[in-house]
Amino acid sequence: MAPKRRATTTTTTTPVTNAQLKALINQGVVDALAARNVDRSRNGNDNHNSGMVENQVKFATCTLHGVTLTWWKSHVKTVGQDAAQDMPWNTLMKMMTATYLLFLKEISHIKT
């Protein structure tokens, strides 16, 4: 009996520009949000702490860096990790927006 031949696989790489990569990521986010919305409407559950998004605050805050990460660590020290990560998504967004606007206000005073 003749020995079996292995199948060979050829991998082709295609260069991707930063703009193309960003567009792919943005499309992936749009697709994921659309799928989440379909799932929510199918299940009749439209709250912001259900199913796939129950760890939304935890995930989002794990992606922070720089000044924003410093701000978040300070907040966690103030209220505790469990309380910080258990806050509703809308609360986190309001806090981050308020902090960002305050930061912009401080910067504008420095530049003038």
Rank of each mutant, 00 (worst) to 15 (best):
M1H: 11
M1V: 15
M1S: 15
A2M: 04
R5E: 12
T8H: 13
T8G: 10
T8Q: 15
T10G: 10
T11Q: 13
T13L: 15
T13Q: 14
P15F: 11
T17Y: 02
N18W: 09
N18L: 10
N18I: 09
A23Q: 15
I25W: 10
N26I: 01
Q27S: 09
V30H: 15
V30Y: 10
A35S: 07
V38A: 14
D39E: 15
R40P: 06
R40L: 13
N43Q: 14
N43E: 14
H48I: 11
H48Q: 08
H48K: 07
N49P: 00
N49H: 11
S50R: 05
S50G: 05
S50N: 07
G51C: 03
G51P: 03
M52C: 03
M52G: 11
N55F: 05
F59I: 14
A60Q: 00
L64H: 00
L64M: 08
L64C: 06
G66Q: 02
T68E: 09
T70L: 08
T70Y: 07
W71R: 01
W72Q: 00
W72V: 00
S74A: 08
H75F: 12
V76Q: 02
T78R: 08
T78F: 08
G80F: 01
Q81F: 08
Q85P: 00
Q85E: 14
Q85C: 02
Q85L: 10
W89S: 06
T91Q: 15
K94G: 06
M95Q: 09
M95K: 15
M96K: 07
A98D: 13
A98Q: 07
A98I: 04
T99L: 06
Y100A: 15
Y100F: 10
L101H: 03
L101W: 00
F103N: 11
L104Y: 03
K105C: 05
K105Q: 12
E106K: 08
E106I: 13
H109Y: 12
I110K: 11
T112V: 07
T112S: 08
